[in-house]
Design a protein around this nucleic acid. Structure first.
Lengths: 138, 138
DNA sequence: AGGTTATTTAACCTAGGGGCTAAATAAGAG
DNA sequence: CTCTTATTTAGCCCCTAGGTTAAATAACCT
């Protein structure tokens, strides 16, 4: 009965209402009432959606008087992104380039600080590297 | 009845069997029989899963004699990644750093042009800004 | 205490998802 | 044509997801 975390997270994301709620929460923490306002739907329905999102680890909830403010919780998003990473090479062409760019910038940053300025000019394109690369993101 | 693309994609990803199938396909194109082999499940069940994945745009299928080889299809993965990008700032530190760096660079650029050089030392925290930001990946 | 606001729980309904078995289709192989 | 292999379709179950309304909590206000 209890789905694995990734399954319940994806399941939670499969509903447009819930994704809209998350989009709203991306703008900042807010109450159930305000979250419910845009939808033509009863409050219990929204309450259920929030429970699903919370159980999926996509949001967390606090308590302030009679309000239960909701906010984005990063963990499950991170897991989804991580899982997606296994497939990124199938579509993200700029993945390698961006990755290279990041390293370059980091190197420059370091160069400034250490004043050692080892010049990076080479890009990597190898495929094997995909596997061994320490995640730059996540 | 017809869910929006993102919803059916997330729904397709919400099943561990289907994710396992995708993981197998990440290793390369293969037949239904071979995809079914690891699972203690009837072939029709697998067939249904494949149909769901195909309808979600996560795989595509060819025809070779009596086989219908399946392979990863990039489009829907890309869409998921794109959607996820709206939330990346919530967990990806390197994303924020990149974002900050980009803004800094832009600011320097502007400074050069306008020759007004208002020194930027502070990182943005405004929420509104998030909306107008063009995606870095995608 | 009694009232108002915010949110959840309970009980119910319906549609669709994921599984099965049996049968149908598609395409090579003899 | 017939046989075998690969895959899908057709029904049939059962259970859960998402919605509803009515009632229960929770916490503030007077």
């Amino acid at each position: 009965m209890p789905l694995d975390p990734l399954s319940s997270t994806f399941a939670a994301l499969a509903d447009p209402t819930r994704r809209a709620i998350l989009a709203r929460l991306a703008l900042g923490e807010t109450s159930v009432m305000e979250l419910a306002e845009p939808f033509d739907m009863s409050l219990p329905a929204i309450s259920k959606h929030l429970k699903v999102l919370e159980h999926a680890g996509l949001i967390s909830r606090g308590r302030e008087a009679q309000w239960r403010p909701c906010r984005i919780a990063p963990a499950s998003f991170r897991q989804v992104d991580f899982w997606l990473g296994n497939f990124r090479r199938f579509w993200d062409e700029s993945f390698n380039r961006l990755d290279g760019l990041l390293e370059e910038m980091k190197a420059e940053e370091v160069a400034k600080v250490t004043a050692k300025a080892s010049p990076r000019t080479k890009r990597k394109t190898s495929v094997d590297k995909e596997k061994q690369r320490g995640r730059t993101r996540g």
